[in-house]
Amino acid sequence: MTSARQLSVAYFDGLTARAQPVLMWVEPGMLQLSGAGLIRQVPLNKVQWSERTRHGARMAHFADGGTIQAVNPADWDSWLDHHDLGAPLSVRAHQSWRWTMLATTVLLMVAVMGYWWGLPLAARLLAPLVPQTVSQQIGKATLQTMDEQWLKPSQLPFQEQAHWRALLSKAIAQGLEGTEIDTGTRAASRQPAIQLQFRQAHIGPNAFALPDGNIVITDDLIALLHDREDVLIGVVGHETGHITGRHGLRGLIQAGLLGAIGSLTFGDFSTVLASAPILMGQLAYSRDLEREADDAAITFMHRNHIRPSVMGVFFQRVKDASPRRGQATAPQADDASQPIGIAFSSHPADAERLAHFQSADLDGGLQEQPTPP
C-alpha cells in the first residue's frame, strides 16, 4: 500500500487475461484508477465489491466487464474499511459465529412459537372458511377407512341401539338448544348435523367425533356405562364439543399446514391432502382442544340437568378397565389394538380435568345422581 488513500491493485480490462498494475483511490463519489497508459474514473455506486470471505479473492467488478483484484488481501480490507466501503452488516453478521448462533436461536424460537401458537391460530381462523361439503367428504372417507381397517359392525341388538340412539339424540337436542346449530342461523349452516354410529372395536370403551358430525360409540363404552346414562350423556357432550368446535378439521388443517411447510421445504405436495383420512384416524387432540371440549361438555350437561362431577365415574371405570396402562392414555404408536387417536381418552384423566368437572356443579336445577358403584 503506497499511502493511506492509495492502494496497489491488479486491473483486468475484461478483454484480455493480462493484469495491469494500477493505483486505486477515492475522490468524492468516484473511484480513481491510474497506471501505465490508464486513467479511469468509475462512480462508486456502479462498483460491485465482492463479498469478503476468509480465504477468497478480493475483487471488484465494473459494468463493462473490467475487474480489479487485490494484490494484498489484508491491505485491501483495510483500505475498504478506511473508506467505509467494507462489507454490509448482513455480510459481516453471517461471517460472525456469534451472529450466526443468535440468528439460529431466533429462528428456532420463531419456529417453536409458530408451531405452538401460530398453527393453532391459523387453524382456528381457517376452519370456519372451509365449506361443510369438505368436512362431509373428509368424515365420510375417514369412517370408511376406519370401517375397513379398525372397526366392525356393532354387536348390540337393534332394539338396544335404537334405545341409546333415541336417548342420546334427545340429550343432544337439549344440550344444543339455543345454540347456532339449533337456531338455524347462517352460521349454523356451516355446522354439521350430529349423527350417532355404533361400532365394535378393539380400542376399548371409547367414543370419537368426525368432522362430518358423526359420533362413533364403541360397544365397550355402552357396556361400561350401561347403568349410567348420565355419564354416557357427558361423554357424548364432550364429543359434541369437538364437532361444534370443528376440532377435527382444525387439527387436520394444522397437520396440513405443517405438511405444506414441509412440502415447500422439501418439494413434495403429492401426499398432503391424499392422506387426510389416515391423518384423521391417528390425530390426537391437543390439550387446549380437550379443554374446550370439556367446557362444552359441562354446558351440555347443565342443559340436560346433570352434574358434571359424575364424569369422575367415567374416568375411574376406564382406569379400572385398563389395568395394563393404569389409566386412560393416548394410544401408543406400536399398539395395533389402539390405532385411533381422536378419542375421548386421548389424554390422561388427570386431576386437573377431574377438578374442572367437579367444580362445575351447580347448586340448583340439577338431577341428584346415584352414588357411583
Rank of each mutant, 00 (worst) to 15 (best):
L38G: 06
M59H: 05
A70Y: 11
H61P: 00
V47N: 08
V106Q: 03
D75F: 00
H83P: 01
H83C: 01
V110Q: 04
G37Q: 03
D84F: 06
H61K: 10
E51N: 11
A93S: 12
M109E: 06
D77K: 07
D84V: 02
N72Y: 02
W117P: 00
G118L: 07
W49C: 01
R92A: 12
P43F: 05
R40G: 10
V91F: 09
E51S: 13
G56V: 05
L108R: 07
R52S: 13
Q48N: 09
T104A: 15
Y115G: 02
G118Q: 02
L119M: 12
G86R: 03
W116E: 10
R52V: 14
W117Q: 11
V91R: 13
V71M: 09
D81Y: 04
A74M: 07
R98H: 14
Q95M: 14
Q48P: 00
V112C: 00
L44Q: 07
H94I: 04
M101N: 13
L80D: 08
V91I: 13
L119G: 06
S50H: 08
S50Y: 00
V42R: 06
V91Y: 10
Q48R: 14
A93H: 11
A93W: 15
L119I: 13
W99N: 03
T53I: 12
G118D: 03
P88M: 08
H82V: 04
G37K: 06
